[in-house]
Write a protein that binds this DNA or RNA. Structure first.
Lengths: 158, 158
DNA sequence: GCGGATTGTTTGGGGAGCAAACAAATTCGC
DNA sequence: GCGAATTTGTTTGCTCCCCAAACAATCCGC
C-alpha cells in the first residue's frame, strides 16, 4: 500500500470541481488570449494592450468623446482612465482637446499618426483573432460570442 | 446637415469592429463575471478572489504540493505566488510545511479552518455559477466551456 | 447668480504579473 | 564522493489595472 509519492515531473494535478466551472474556463482562456495578443504585437514590434486597442477604436469611431463617456463605455472608473490616456497621448496617438461646448470636458480624438497606428493595430488584431479562433468553425465562433454576451448580461453587478 | 451633437446622456457609442471580436467579448464577460463573483462573496460577508478560490481547491485536492508545482498549475510565476500564499497563510487557511523529502520545497496544505472555509466558499461559487449561467441551458453551458477550452488551446503562447 | 451636480485630476491603496538576483538545498557529472 | 549545475522559495524593483476620496473648475437649475 502506498507506492512512494510519484515524483514524475509532469504529474497532472487534480483540479477538483474547477473544470466544471464556467468562471474558471473564462479566466484561463482570457489569460491565454491576452498572452497571444501581446505576443502578436511584440512579434510585429508594436506594443498595445487589448484595453488600449478598445479605447483607440472607441475614440476613432466617436471623435469628440469626453473622458467620462469613454470611461463608462469601457466600464472603468474615470480616475483609472487618466493614466491610460496620458500614456497614449505621450505616444502621440490621442489628443485631449478642449471641448468647444463644455469647459469641463475634453474632446478626445486620434491624431493623424494615431489613425495610421490604429490601421496597423487592426490588422494585427485580425491576425490574432484568426489564430485564437483557428480551432473553431465560423458558426462556433459566432456561437461563442453570443453565449459570452448572454453570460455577461446575467452577471450584471449585484 | 449636422444636427447639433446629440447631448442625450445615454447615447449608444459606435463600437466599430469590437463587437465582432472574440477577445473583446471575452474580456468584457470576464470582467462582469469577476464583479459578480466579488459581489456574491461580499454579500455573504466573505472575501475571496477567483484566483484564490482556484488555489485553495488545488491545494485541497493535492495536499503536499510544492509552490513551483502550484504556480505551474495556476499558470503564474513562482514569485507571483509568494504574496498570495502569504495572505492566505495570514488568514489561517493554508500552511507551508517543510517537505520531508526535499528541503528546498514547502509542502502546502489547507488548515482545518481552511477546509471549512473552502466548503463555504464552494457553496458560494456554485450559487455564483448558477446565476451567471442563468441565461443558458445546461447544454449551452457545456458548449460554452468546451468552446473556451478550444480557444485556449489555440491561443498557446508564442 | 447661487447652490448643487459633473468632469478631470491627484493621491492613496490594493492586487496581479514579470524579471533578476540570492541563499539554501538537491541533483548531476564524473 | 565531491564539485558544479540546477531547482526552489524569497526579495526587490518595475509595470499595469482598478477603485475611492478629495479638490478645483465648470456647468446647470432655478
Amino acid at each position: 500500500m502506498g507506492r512512494p509519492p510519484d515524483k514524475s515531473p509532469l504529474k497532472a494535478l487534480d483540479r477538483g470541481l474547477l473544470p466544471s466551472l464556467m468562471g474558471y474556463a473564462l479566466r484561463r482562456t482570457q489569460s491565454a488570449v491576452f498572452a497571444d495578443f501581446a505576443a502578436t504585437f511584440a512579434k510585429a514590434g508594436e506594443a498595445l494592450t487589448p484595453g488600449e486597442f478598445g479605447l483607440l477604436v472607441l475614440v476613432d469611431r466617436n471623435a469628440g468623446l469626453s473622458q467620462m463617456a469613454l470611461a463608462r463605455a469601457l466600464g472603468i472608473d474615470r480616475s483609472t482612465l487618466v493614466p491610460i490616456l496620458d500614456r497614449l497621448q505621450a505616444r502621440g496617438l490621442v489628443v485631449r482637446r478642449p471641448s468647444p461646448t463644455d469647459g469641463r470636458t475634453h474632446a478626445l480624438a486620434l491624431t493623424a499618426s494615431g489613425e495610421k497606428a490604429l490601421a496597423r493595430f487592426a490588422r494585427l488584431v485580425r491576425a490574432h483573432e484568426k489564430r485564437i479562433a483557428s480551432g473553431l468553425s465560423a458558426s462556433e465562433t459566432r456561437t461563442l460570442i453570443d453565449l459570452l454576451e448572454k453570460v455577461r448580461a446575467s452577471a450584471r453587478s449585484l
